[in-house]
Nucleic acid binder design. Structure first.
Lengths: 237, 237
DNA sequence: AAGTGGTCTAGACCACACT
DNA sequence: GTGTGGTCTAGACCACTTC
C-alpha cells in the first residue's frame, strides 16, 4: 500500500469515528508530516483525496476543516457497484439472475453499447429486490475478450468482485447518463408494478488501459431511486 | 493565472480542437516539461486536472491517452449553473423570475435548507423555458448575510455571475440529491403540464471557507431531464 | 509577525509497457 | 534495455488568515 493511501485511510477512519469531529480542523500539514514521518507532498496527496471525496475543505491560512456529513449524504454517486453499495449501507437485498447468455454485437447494439460490431459479449439480466420487492433491473453487457468466463453464481454474488479479485482487472472510469423513461410491458412484468415511468442509468465502463469492458442499463423503480452527489466547482471552463 | 492552470487550459484547448486527437497519446511528461519550461510536478498537476475531468487517461509505461468524448458526453454534472450550461451548449433559453422576496428561516425551513433558524435569506423562484415551454422551475434560497443585495435583473440574468463577478464570492462545492417526486397542483400550473412526476434536485452550495450561501430545489420536467456524469472508481473504500 | 496552505522546483528511485 | 508514468523527498518562496 502506498504511503499516501495509508495516510488517507487513517485520516478517513479518524474522521468517521469522530476522532477528528466535523466543524474542526485537522492537524496542520506540518504536524501530519511529523505524525506520519513523511514529506509534505505525501501528506498533501492524502489531503487532496479527502478533499476530492468531500470529507474536508482546505482554507488557506486557516487549515483543513472536516465537513459535516449531511443526512442526505452517502456515496451513491461515483463508480460503485450495487453489491458494494448495499454492503456499505447494510441493506439486505437480494439479487436474482434472470438470464445469462452470450451474444454477438450487431450494429445497433454496437452504437448503443460502444462495443465493436461482431465482437462477442456476455448479456446478463438481474433483478435487485429489497423486502421481496423488485426495485432495480440491471442489464449488463461484458466484453468476452476481457471476461472469458461468467457463471450464474458469479452474477448472483458480485461481478465486480470477480473481475477485480479473480481476474485482476483494473476498473478505472465510466461515463453515465441518467434519464427518466416510460416503462415497457416487459419492464412492468419484471418489476411487478404498474408504474408508467422508471429511471434509466446507462453507463459505459472502462479499464485503466482505456479498453471498454462493460455497458449497463440500470432501471430503477421511480419511488426507490435516489442519487447523491458531492461536486466541486471548476473555476476553469 | 497559475502555471499549471495555463498548461491545463492550453492542453484542453488543443484536445478540443483535435490538435491532440482522441485515441492518441499526449506528449510525454518530459516533453511537456520542455514545451512549457516548467518542472515535472507542474506538468503532472495539469495532467491530473485533465484526468479528473475525463479528458485523458494515464497508462503507466505508455503515456496519457486522449479519451474520445461520446455523444452522451457534455458536462451536466458537477457544479455548474443553469446559465453557464445553456451558454456552453448554445441553447436558447429564457429565464422568468416568478417571485423574489426576503424570508426569515423558521425551524422547518432550517432543516430543509441547512440555514440557521432566524437568519434571513432571499427566496427566488424562476422558470426556465426552451422553445416557449417551461422545462425547469428553480427555487433558490440565498443567505442574506453573504448576498446583501438581489434584484429582478440579476435573477433574470445569472446569479452566479453576479456572486462571483461582482461580489467576489468563491463558490467551492455542493451536496446534491436527485429523486423523482409526484407533482403538486402549483407545480403543474407553473410548468403548464399535467405530468404526474418531476425530477427534483436538491442542493446545498458552500463557499471556499465552508460557509453555506445557497440552497436550491430544481424541478425538471420529466421528459426534459438528462444528467451526464464522468466517474472514476475509488479503489479505496 | 507568526502560522497556514498554495505553488514550484530538482532530483531520486520504483513499477510497468514496449521491443 | 529503454522509456514511460508513479511515488517520495527536501527545500524555497508566495498568499492568505489570524493575532
Amino acid at each position: 500500500m502506498k504511503k499516501y493511501q495509508e495516510i488517507y485511510h487513517d485520516l478517513k477512519e479518524k474522521i468517521r469515528t469522530n476522532l477528528y469531529p466535523a466543524e474542526t480542523s485537522l492537524p496542520t500539514e506540518q504536524q501530519l508530516q511529523e505524525i506520519y514521518g513523511v514529506s509534505r507532498d505525501t501528506v498533501r496527496k492524502a489531503l487532496a483525496m479527502l478533499t476530492e471525496g468531500g470529507l474536508i475543505q482546505k482554507v488557506q491560512g486557516r487549515g483543513s476543516m472536516v465537513l459535516k456529513q449531511e443526512i442526505l449524504n452517502f456515496p451513491v454517486s461515483g463508480l460503485t457497484s450495487y453489491q458494494e453499495l448495499t454492503n456499505s449501507l447494510q441493506l439486505s437485498s437480494q439479487t436474482q439472475v434472470v438470464s445469462l447468455e452470450q451474444v454477438t454485437v450487431n450494429s445497433s447494439l454496437a452504437s448503443l453499447t460502444g462495443f465493436e460490431p461482431y465482437s462477442k459479449v456476455w448479456k446478463v439480466v438481474r433483478t435487485r429486490s429489497i423486502d421481496g420487492k423488485v426495485s432495480v433491473v440491471d442489464t449488463d453487457y461484458l466484453a468476452e475478450e476481457l471476461v472469458p468466463e461468467l457463471t450464474f453464481e458469479i452474477a448472483e454474488k458480485s461481478i465486480y468482485e470477480y473481475l477485480e479479485g479473480q481476474l485482476g482487472l483494473d476498473i478505472a472510469y465510466a461515463q453515465k447518463e441518467i434519464t427518466v423513461e416510460p416503462t415497457s410491458r416487459e419492464e412492468r412484468d419484471l418489476m411487478q408494478c404498474q408504474d408508467d415511468y422508471l429511471v434509466l442509468i446507462k453507463s459505459r465502463v472502462y479499464l485503466g488501459d482505456t479498453r471498454q469492458f462493460q455497458y449497463t442499463e440500470s432501471k430503477h423503480k421511480i419511488d426507490k431511486f435516489r442519487f447523491v452527489d458531492f461536486a466541486r466547482r471548476k473555476h476553469s471552463l
